[in-house]
Write a protein that binds this DNA or RNA. Structure first.
Length: 570
RNA sequence: GCCUUGGUAGUGUAGCUGGUUAUCAUGAAGCCCUGUCGAGGCUUCGACUCGGGUUCGAAUCCCGGCCAGGGCGCCA
């Protein structure tokens, strides 16, 4: 016996009169006494079956989601159903076999996220959900082909790697044959792709799974997929040019949109204008630096502050709205949100009583609005900028300026190489410690770590960080100095990263590359921020899978084999 | 670790200024129906997250736990 001659989206008027076999799920049954209409469904579509009990024996009741095999004749419908691809025909069933029965489904289209994850295999039966997984496949296929056309080869790097002390927490895997030792699951193929350059691979890419044991967000999962690549003998402009071409090609193919050339900001410029290292360029609303204008108002909060940043919005916000926005800036450590209302150039409310005419004129001149509300945060530079940047995002969202059909990319480059960790009282790499400092800092970066810029950059789309990249350090000496500076003296560096440092002693090309967040790219192409929708089997916020129940306990025997002390009594 | 929002039939919800037979839709079970395609009609079934408190009386108010969503920290 065979199960089908066609899938459920194939039959057309041309097939009328043919005897066909179809298999699939019962999507819906409409019974009219002796005659029943069944929508038979598979991944490809639906076909209406007509079941006349005079012509066909059915021994058992049919119910939704039963899997059946039918044989029958294709017939033209008198009135076509325009909602179905196969709507011009139907299949008059002569034989029907129940392949498997189904219980009533525990979820429907209204079910909560948790239930949907628990019954993901049922959730994915919905066409719009499976379509996202199919869409994902097509994007990945396109990206692979793009790399291939440009001379890249895909190299699979190991999933069991050496644990490293920096960056995100590792998922660790105990080694049975090496008692007491552990592998880590890779946070990224970083070191392997660099070594592949030394091996002469020249242009590497990988659709790579990356795993991190950190807290989750809507756009963060414990395992995610990156379009990871590395190129030899290129400078950073060439790498960005390649990645820009790739992203343009993806957006053109899957959204039909020809995006503009990507704007480029330095990190400092992005922070100054947008208060954010991943600016959403779908709307303007740039920050305004009022530090000079407002430094001598006589208003203590302003006069004592290092900097004052503002945002001028052509909208009259209510007291309640302003209170809500104040809560937003407070999350980002601002102590408060000052404001003035402007109508026809006249100031009213908020802090306007502290401002003299001269200052008011300067504010109007700089903010370029005559009516609306001007917000201020007076604080340390970093706090004032980031809280205003988040306020900008919030207002952009509230005012409906974040159009999901727009695709505004930009590059943010020249990131600081180091940032200071107040808690641990030491300098840390801003991205990772294999990124090259810009040339002018190589000689004496140890003396002025706060100023050092790296040849490293991010790719941003609509306010989301899609990718990071850098030119790598290829000099073993410089690499050792950087490691030493961020807390790995030479003996420790050799122990943790000796394999990498050693490799660079044997002739390394100049190289650099990027890792592009595949899940985020695919999600944004589909107009959502939630990457779980484009991952077939995602985890919930507690990094659990409600479907299979992972993570789970292991057996006592496994603890013994792995030389690990059990924390429970099983 | 912290902040915040929520938890009512299988699913999604109303009620939540204290007293209801706890609303509606969907679903499930059964019946009717030979042209439906969001089928229709009738009947039935099914729920207040857990613990404590206030009260004559708690789905409703208070406290705590558990669970889930969003965020901060964290995450190149």
């Amino acid at each position: 016996m065979y199960y089908r001659t066609h899938n459920c989206s194939e039959l057309r008027l041309d097939n009328v009169g043919q005897n066909v076999v179809l298999s699939g799920w019962i999507d819906k049954i409409r019974t009219h006494g002796q005659i029943s209409f069944i929508d038979l469904r598979d991944r490809f579509g639906k076909t209406q079956l007509v079941l006349n009990l005079d012509d066909c024996d059915v021994s058992d009741d049919l119910k939704k989601e039963y899997v059946i095999r039918v044989e029958g004749i294709v017939a033209k419908k008198e009135v076509a159903n325009e909602n179905l691809e196969t709507g011009e025909i139907e299949v008059k069933v002569s034989q029907l076999k129940i392949i498997n029965k189904a219980l009533a489904l525990p979820i429907d289209e209204n079910a909560s996220d948790e239930m949907r994850l628990k019954y993901r295999y049922i959730d994915l039966r919905k066409k719009e959900n499976m379509d996202k997984i199919v869409f994902r496949y097509n994007v990945i296929k396109h990206v692979r082909e793009y790399f291939d056309k440009n001379g890249f080869i895909e190299i699979e790097t190991p999933m069991l790697v050496k644990p490293t002390p920096e960056g995100a927490r590792d998922y660790v895997v105990p080694s049975r044959v090496n008692p007491g030792k552990f592998y880590a699951l890779p946070q990224s193929p970083q070191l392997y792709k660099q070594i592949s350059m030394i091996a002469g691979a020249d242009r590497y890419f990988q659709v790579a799974r990356c795993l991190r044991d950190e807290d989750l967000r809507a756009d963060r999962q414990p395992e995610h997929t990156q379009f990871d690549f590395e190129m030899s003998f290129v400078n950073s402009d060439e790498i960005r040019e390649f990645a820009e071409g790739l992203m343009k090609s993806v957006v053109l193919k899957f959204k039909g949109i020809k995006v503009d050339d990507f704007k480029t900001f330095s990190y400092e410029e992005a922070m100054e204008r947008y208060g954010c290292d991943k600016p959403d360029l779908r709307f303007d609303l740039e920050l305004i630096n009022f530090s000079e204008i407002l430094k001598n108002t006589g208003f203590g909060v302003f006069d004592d502050a290092q900097t004052i940043y503002g945002l001028a919005v052509e909208k009259d916000f209510s007291r309640k709205e302003i209170d809500a926005l104040t809560e937003v800036v407070k999350i980002y450590k601002a102590k408060g949100l000052a404001y003035v209302k402007v109508s026809d150039g006249n100031f009213d409310g908020g802090v306007s009583k502290f401002l003299n005419e001269d200052i008011k004129n300067k504010i109007i001149e700089k903010s370029k609005i005559k009516n609306g509300t001007i917000f201020f945060v007076a604080d340390k530079k970093k706090v004032a900028r980031t809280s205003m940047g988040e306020l900008r995002n919030k207002i952009g969202l509230d005012l409906g300026l974040k159009d999901p059909d727009k695709f505004k990319f930009c590059w943010v480059k020249d990131f600081p190489l180091f940032s200071y960790n107040d808690e641990e009282e030491k300098w840390e790499p801003e991205h990772h410690m294999f990124s090259m400092p810009k040339e002018e800092f190589v000689e004496d970066f140890e003396k002025r770590p706060g100023e050092v810029l790296g040849d490293l950059w991010d790719l941003v789309l609509n306010g989301t960080e899609l990718a990071s990249g850098s030119i790598r350090i290829t000099s073993p000496d410089l690499q050792k100095r950087i490691m030493k500076f961020v807390g790995f003296p030479e003996d420790e560096a050799m122990e943790k990263f000796g394999f990498l440092l050693n490799a660079y002693n044997y002739g390394a090309p100049v190289h650099g590359g990027m890792g592009l967040g595949a899940d985020r790219i695919i999600a944004l192409l589909l107009g959502t921020n939630d990457i779980r929708e484009v991952i077939a089997y995602p985890k919930n916020k507690n990094a659990q899978c409600p479907m299979d129940g992972s993570p789970a306990n292991i057996y006592k025997k496994q603890y013994e084999e792995l030389f690990i002390k059990s924390t429970n009594n099983e």
